[in-house]
Amino acid sequence: MRLRCLAWVLLGLAGVPAQAMAQAAPIQSVAPAISLAGLWRGPLPVPGGELELSFSIIALTGGTYFAALDVPMQRLSRVPVTVQQPVGTDSVLLLVPQLDSRFLARRSADGQQLRGMWCRPGLRTPVVLHYSPLPAAVGLPARFAPPYREEEVTFTNATARVKLAGTLTVPPGKGPFPAAVLVSDIGEQDRDGLAPTASAGLLSYRLLGSLADYLTRHGVAVMRLDDRGVGGSSGSTDATTPTQRVTDVQAALNYLRTRPEVDLLHLGLIG
């Protein structure tokens, strides 16, 4: 509903001629090596006022980014954003598929501004975003008790002789419920999808924890694990092959089959 609300507001924008970009003052090129990581904020003009846009961009390995859009006045939070930065240019493209919108911009020579057009089909309006550093994490936000059951579990991968630890979340009610095991990406990660060396900016974004929360609220029991050598799991991720990781997942599925709350005919993997 909130996404539709923002979409409705954006549809009411007055059209801006395409020549506006050409008439804008030229921006000097900036070296593409400068990272986009940071907080980018600026006003989006709308009929009767402005909406404050806030893009949080975090650098990941391999030159990619995690990014999310917040629009406080519309009560929109962490709307997924795809970042594209063509090599050898000062151009930046921020795609927001859930809002059917995109921001096509050029970065200023000092790296402090993104100046461009906020676009929807048939509509364009100029926007300037200003850079500021991401705030330092001083602690994780308070977490309220969820409307479902959480259980810390441990079980053994008998094939590899390692102990695996994780969290099982179960929807309210008697069940049985469909169930899924969340599988982490390559490298050491805990049950929430965080690496032991995660930067401060990533600590508040727990991919697997957020996914488990969403699925459980929608009637799916979810198991998520600490990788070997992380958290409560024994062993070592460095010495683990993909084939050996498969046996960890199989052990998690076998554990779910022992739970009376789980529908044995509806088990799956996500990852």
Rank of each mutant, 00 (worst) to 15 (best):
T216G: 09
A142L: 11
E188I: 03
H218W: 10
M223Q: 06
P133L: 01
Y148G: 04
F155Y: 08
L203F: 11
T167F: 00
A200F: 06
T169R: 02
R120S: 10
A180C: 11
R120T: 07
R124N: 13
G231L: 06
M223V: 04
D192H: 09
S184L: 03
A180N: 02
G166V: 03
V128G: 04
T243C: 08
A158G: 03
G122E: 11
A165R: 01
A180Y: 11
E152P: 04
S204Q: 15
S234Y: 01
P133W: 01
Q244W: 10
S204W: 14
R143S: 14
T125C: 12
V162P: 08
Q244G: 09
P242T: 05
T216N: 05
G139C: 11
P133D: 01
G122K: 02
S199E: 12
D190S: 08
A158C: 00
E150P: 00
S132C: 02
D227P: 07
A165V: 09
G166A: 04
R124D: 15
C119G: 01
G235R: 08
V183Q: 03
L182S: 06
G219N: 01
D226G: 08
L202E: 12
T237W: 15
T159H: 14
G201P: 14
H218N: 15
Y148R: 11
T241N: 03
G166N: 04
T243P: 04
L168F: 09
A221S: 13
E151I: 09
